[in-house]
């Protein structure tokens, strides 16, 4: 399912800001990033590349059915 897990998050919020599609948010209680809207992940890996502690794991599969023009 696209962006999969965040392990070892330090809560710097970089990924939240750098995600073009607003998939990640800060959990107000734990002060750590959580994958809040995975269906909107476009699997571009910007969050992973920006993460200072390399905490983000991404898989190439989409969590919702994929519509293409021809296949």
């Amino acid at each position: 399912m696209s962006i999969q897990s965040i392990n070892g998050c330090i809560g710097c919020e970089t990924c939240i800001k750098m995600c073009p599609t607003d998939v990640i948010r800060l959990d107000p209680k734990t002060k750590k990033a959580v994958i809040k809207y995975p269906a909107d992940c476009q699997i571009c890996h910007l969050c992973r590349m920006y993460c200072p502690v390399d905490a983000i794991t991404i898989s190439p599969e989409k969590s919702i059915p994929v519509i293409v023009s021809w296949g």
């Binding site: 699997i43 190439p60 599969e61 989409k62 994929v66 293409v68």
Partner: peptide, 8 residues
């Protein structure tokens, strides 16, 4: 394969 994954 994994058409939605633009990174890949």
């Amino acid at each position: 394969i994994n058409a939605a994954s633009c990174f890949d």
